[in-house]
Design a protein around this nucleic acid. Structure first.
Ligand code: FES
Ligand code: FES
Lengths: 143, 143
DNA sequence: CATATAAAAGATAAAAATGTCTTTTAATAT
DNA sequence: ATATTAAAAGACATTTTTATCTTTTATATG
């Protein structure tokens, strides 16, 4: 469904959202354990997210990765699209080129609506909202 | 979403459903073109599906692959699970081990229902039903 | 300024998915 | 029976994804 990279990235960003801010940062190697992702792998992913303004970071002593309030407004789809490309989630289930509502493939009717609801959710939901759910006890994060 | 193998397999099976029966068979190399999948690749996939009773085949002159009426009753999920494993589609979006309705991860609320509707569709829909849609002009198959 | 720290960037390695090719087995037709 | 046909099976090659390791750059501190 999602690539490992996308899952790892989401876990990493959620961890940062829960545990950091402009002042309190955390190093890649210290995120690795809690979210159960290899240290150098999560480092790479966070760097990539940093380049696109999804996470913030500062080098050197007491540096590390963190999320600003602005960062937390990122919609989930941005993280997924960055790592998996738009194609993976949004393309036709059978990978047919010229398919749309007017020219639907056999699976379209079956899963088309479901899929677009799913994507709309990812577009409309931000990191901040997921964090709120966790704080409200609506969801849990045993990463 | 689905692996290439799963997409190829679905296209191959749909092609067989539309173009073959016990008497009229088609060789792997002749499916390749119409569904736009490498000949040796679709051959492998159909062999694998054959082992699990999803397609039928006969060796030798005038042999080839085909679908019986029985074969056409196969639910779509069987083809997908065979090639991708159940895990890919059905596991938690963040790949968390011990997660369920009572212990939902942050994405669960967001996509959980959508995802299970999707899976239920795949479980309840058979090849035969997709073929009927095509014959009724409800969907199209420019593979 | 010198040193230590930690991210950024780049190179390399391992594993999995995709794709191709060759040999073997089973069925048909001559 | 023998030759031909086509799937079955297995070996092999390529590409992509995942994972690790090394070097460079930026920042803070003494
Ligand atoms: S046309 Fe294939 S999923 Fe929409
Ligand atoms: S608990 Fe993660 S998707 Fe259900």
């Amino acid at each position: 469904m999602l690539s490992k990279s996308a899952k790892y990235a989401l876990k990493g960003v959620l961890y940062l959202a829960m545990n950091t801010n402009e002042q309190k940062r955390v190093m890649a190697k210290d995120i690795s354990g809690p979210i159960n992702v290899p240290p150098s792998y999560i480092a790479k992913l966070l760097q990539q997210l940093g380049r696109h303004g999804v996470v913030s970071s500062i080098k050197g002593p007491h540096g590390g990765f963190f999320l600003t309030e602005e960062n937390k407004k990122t919609p989930l789809i941005k993280i997924i699209d960055l790592l998996d490309g738009e194609y993976r989630l949004k393309s036709c289930m059978l990978s047919l080129k010229d398919c749309n509502e007017l020219n639907p493939c056999p699976l379209h009717r079956l899963v088309g609506n479901v899929k677009s609801d799913f994507i709309r959710s990812l577009e409309q939901t931000t990191i901040a909202e997921l964090v709120q759910d966790i704080k409200d006890g609506k969801s849990f994060l045993p990463l």
